[in-house]
Amino acid sequence: MIEIKDLHKSYQMGSNSLHVLKGINFSVKEGELVAIMGSSGSGKSTLLNILGMLDEADSGSYFLDNLPIKNLNEKIAARYRNKFLGFIFQSFNLINYKNALDNVAMPLYYQGIKRKERTDKALHYLEKVGLADWATHLPNELSGGQKQRVAIARALASEPKVLLADEPTGALDTKTSYEVLELIQGINDEGKTILIVTHEEDIAHMTKRIVNLKDGIIINDGTVKQVRANSYV
């Protein structure tokens, strides 16, 4: 599903350049649930941004479902993001003047889907994350866990090939984190490919594979025995 070869990325910080990714080789097969771990500054967020086409690599190749992701202009990048990827952010990033349903329907709007169908679909995914009753609530009327579940519903709504989650539990307490992870595991069980960036060991162990990053290179990459989140609650 994801094929990355010799990926380099450096940032220009004033006069010195900061080499963040120093040759990443990495592939993810369909249906995997991968945690990308690393201390801060290890380059894990940068990697995720490149995977999410929010940022572009300096060199190296990136194939998403055998499609080369290279030299994209903003318009095509936007279309690819919309079609292939679902984002889950640490700070949820819901649009706060839109209710839960409209937030979930947003990627569908950009796909040009008709209003009626959009609402039906969005409602279906809200149901899936257990928030159908909260469809008309604004984000600030929801708890952190609920917000993240709305965000997950939004990420799923466009039926992407890959879900990318950047510290999805970073702003949540342990109990809520496990609930969210339970949801993510459930989605993965249905066959969706999911990448999670995290620095929490327990969260990482709820995935099927952990990739450890340090100073811009992968130091460790191996499958783990998945801990089911519901075993905690």
Binding site: R79, N82, F87, L94, M106, Y110, Q111
Partner: peptide, 16 residues
């Protein structure tokens, strides 16, 4: 800015 960022992450084209 942030909202625009979100929209673009969700697939809004520059023209939209």
């Amino acid at each position: 800015t942030k909202e625009i960022g979100i929209r673009r992450a969700l697939g809004a084209s520059p023209w939209s």
